[in-house]
């Protein structure tokens, strides 16, 4: 069966850094529920209010640049973000997301292709995203197979647990 994620788009610009996704002053927090309360606080203080039941972030280039803090992924995941699609990602954020089971998809041209607030459907198996209203399809970059394996297992911890059994 195809892996499908459907949700409403919240859009962000280029170079959204980890201090914006999760400000440094909250780094001492360790409970995911507490961490989730500060999602995107440094760039959009109304983010949590704007979140829909199912939210997909669409961003420009270099999303997640800056610090290695895993809080940046934990906060999005536990705030209820289902996936992030960006023109490109900073590498530590990308790894952290895969490791925690948050789908991150690279899709050049995505910032032009989709409006804020539109309902979209991602088919991760086929590597395409479609805008529900217009029916237009956008191709996403294929996830490397070793990365897909980790993501399919639900993240690095279940993946490692399975490998050391």
């Amino acid at each position: 069966m195809d892996w499908i994620i459907k949700g409403t788009v919240l859009k962000f610009s280029d170079n959204i850094d980890t201090d914006q996704i999760y400000p440094g002053r909250y780094l001492e927090l360790t409970d995911p529920k507490d961490i989730a309360r500060h999602a995107m606080e440094g760039v959009d203080s109304s983010f949590l209010k704007r979140m829909k039941e199912s939210t997909i972030l669409i961003a420009g280039k270099n999303f997640g640049c800056g610090s290695s803090r895993e809080h940046a992924v934990i906060t999005l995941l536990h705030a209820g973000v289902k996936a992030v699609i960006a023109e490109s990602f900073a590498r530590i954020f990308f790894r952290n997301a895969i490791n925690l089971g948050l789908p991150v998809l690279i899709c050049p041209g995505i910032s032009q292709g989709v409006e804020d607030g539109s309902l979209v459907e991602m088919n991760l198996t086929r590597g395409v995203m479609s805008v529900v209203e217009s029916g237009s399809e956008i191709k996403m970059q294929k996830i490397p197979s070793n990365v897909a394996e980790i993501l399919n297992k639900g993240g690095l911890i279940p993946y490692i647990r399975a490998s050391i059994k």
Partner: peptide, 28 residues
């Protein structure tokens, strides 16, 4: 820590990771 690239100045391969990557390294 993202600034682990610093160790290239000593001729090492230095790179930053997040917490779960590091936990897997501690294990394996």
């Amino acid at each position: 820590d993202s600034h682990s690239t610093t160790h290239g100045a000593l001729g090492a391969f230095g790179t930053g990771v997040g917490a779960t990557d590091q936990a897997a390294i501690l294990a394996t």
